[in-house]
Simulated assay, not measured.
Amino acid sequence: MWRDILKYGAIAGLVVGAVMIVGFWSAGGDMPHGAMGMVIGYATMLLALSAVFMGIKHHRDVAGGGVIRFWPAFGMGLGISFVAALFYVAAWEFVQATIVHDFAGSYAASVIAAQKAKGIDPAALARLTADMEAFKVQYANPLFRLPMTFAEVFPVGVLVSLVSALVLRNPRVLPAR
């Protein structure tokens, strides 16, 4: 089981990491903040985390003789998601060090610009600007940034693991050939 967790976790992590690196590199380090950036990011995560489903199914069919219970399947999915999230964090750190040098500054500027466009009042704008300056300081700290980055992808992996375990515990769903 551990070998499958590492194998499928690495596959998922390499997919999501490679898409991130290629995407930022091809865009010249520019990133879409807001809804479009989230749609692209989470769609990529879902695509990559389909390896959770494939890994559980492979283990069910090969090691389990076509049968797997919910909890072992869910645990395996969580393991694959954990490994994939570690790859995601490593890829983001690579992107930040080499391609996107000032993510926090760019993000803060986009949040402030979006609120200015909405016509935010001056007092709220001053509070927002102070909050964004504090965010930039926090984001420079790896003890803040790394868990925050991990928390972007791992909850998606938990949901994919839950659905995969629920579906694949039924041996009639995609039976082994």
Results as ranks from 00 to 15, higher is better:
69 R>Q: 13
47 L>S: 09
99 I>Y: 15
42 Y>G: 04
103 F>R: 05
67 V>S: 08
32 P>C: 06
63 A>D: 15
80 I>V: 13
110 S>D: 14
23 G>E: 00
103 F>W: 13
72 P>Q: 01
89 V>K: 10
91 A>L: 12
105 G>K: 03
20 M>L: 15
54 M>A: 15
87 F>L: 02
70 F>S: 03
36 M>D: 12
113 A>G: 02
56 I>Y: 07
33 H>Y: 15
76 M>F: 14
58 H>V: 03
63 A>Y: 15
86 L>D: 05
76 M>A: 04
96 Q>I: 09
86 L>M: 14
76 M>V: 07
69 R>G: 09
98 T>K: 12
108 A>L: 07
111 V>H: 05
58 H>A: 10
106 S>M: 14
23 G>F: 02
60 R>T: 02
23 G>Y: 03
84 A>Y: 05
19 V>K: 04
19 V>F: 15
107 Y>H: 13
56 I>H: 06
37 G>T: 00
22 V>K: 03
115 Q>D: 11
33 H>S: 10
44 T>Q: 06
42 Y>E: 07
98 T>N: 12
47 L>I: 12
81 S>N: 12
67 V>R: 14
25 W>N: 04
73 A>Q: 03
45 M>P: 01
79 G>W: 03
65 G>P: 04
71 W>C: 00
50 S>K: 08
24 F>I: 07
